[in-house]
Design a protein around this nucleic acid. Structure first.
Lengths: 158, 158
DNA sequence: GCCATACTGTATGGAGACATACTAACTAGG
DNA sequence: CCTAGTTAGTATGTCTCCATACAGTATGGC
């Protein structure tokens, strides 16, 4: 609602931050809505698609690849497992590990995830060139790196 | 360690979304950390600075300007009021309304907020030109508009 | 004046993620 | 061996926000 036009009259740091934040939230909302018919949210769909593509993976590997914590990843796997879209196999080489795999039903669902995604992506990209998208990503990554060093610095002796 | 943060190997939609999301979270974290010494988080600092600049405002006005919901705004005002950085005055013209004002102590703190912000902003902007920042904002806004129409469309059964 | 409607602020419950701490299990040094 | 340190997954508490529902108040049509 309040996301459409960003005429926030807020202090500058908040303006930047909240624009990014609001955009992120909106993307999540759009995808959640789009995937709703499939009974998935964005995170679940992402996990499912990722595992479908890369096969048997430990939860820690998944967490790292998806940029989530291990706890959050475990919860997602729980949810997907309950719907039998995914199953956990024991790792013969390491008894601590669950190897996560997509079931047949899961693979079928992934197809629909891809379709839904393509429709939505097209809408989101309207009026934004490929070049702009790439620049957006590049700047965000640099910003992320700056943030990482700021946070790291803060820990070391300040 | 967390330097190489973003080599996400995730599905494309998640890559875009999670980059934005992660960046937003990191910004929030950085500011929270920076404001920690002042006993504030980003949202509280923003609210405080905003009210300090614009004077007596209702919570709804503040919520709108800061891009938050009314409930969240009320909670922030509660927290700031408890520390006596802000006080609520009744509106003589409308008994539903609280007019929020910054106390003397609050105004002093705002000065420090500005200082902290300037230091951090400089670090975040390292290696990013003004032009790039403006483009970033512009693209985000367009993306936000696309998202808004997608969400709206979804409701109107177009 | 009286009523329907709209708006302010609050309470509550839920979503989604993180940080921390814990158990079980692996691994390397002696 | 066996102990210390590390890692995988889980449990718990917290944070920040949203959505919804509610009570009190305002406002405009009649």
């Amino acid at each position: 609602m309040s996301m459409s036009s960003h005429e926030l009259d807020a202090p500058p740091w908040l303006r930047v931050e909240s624009t990014i934040m609001a955009t992120a939230r909106a993307i999540r909302q759009s995808y959640d809505k789009r995937f709703e018919g499939l009974g998935l949210n964005l995170s679940e769909a992402s996990l499912l698609a990722y595992v479908a593509e890369h096969g048997s993976l430990s939860q820690t590997q998944i967490a790292k690849s998806l940029g989530l914590g291990r706890a959050a990843t475990g919860a997602l796997v729980d949810a997907l497992q309950e719907r039998e879209l995914v199953r956990r196999e024991t790792d013969p080489d390491d008894r601590r590990v669950w190897l996560v795999e997509v079931t047949i039903a899961g693979k079928e669902l992934v197809e629909q995830v891809y379709e839904s995604d393509q429709v939505l992506r097209k809408q989101l990209r309207a009026g934004i060139t490929r070049e702009e998208r790439q620049q957006l990503a590049a700047v965000l990554v640099r910003l992320g790196n700056n943030l990482a060093s700021v946070l790291a610095e803060e820990i070391e002796t300040t």
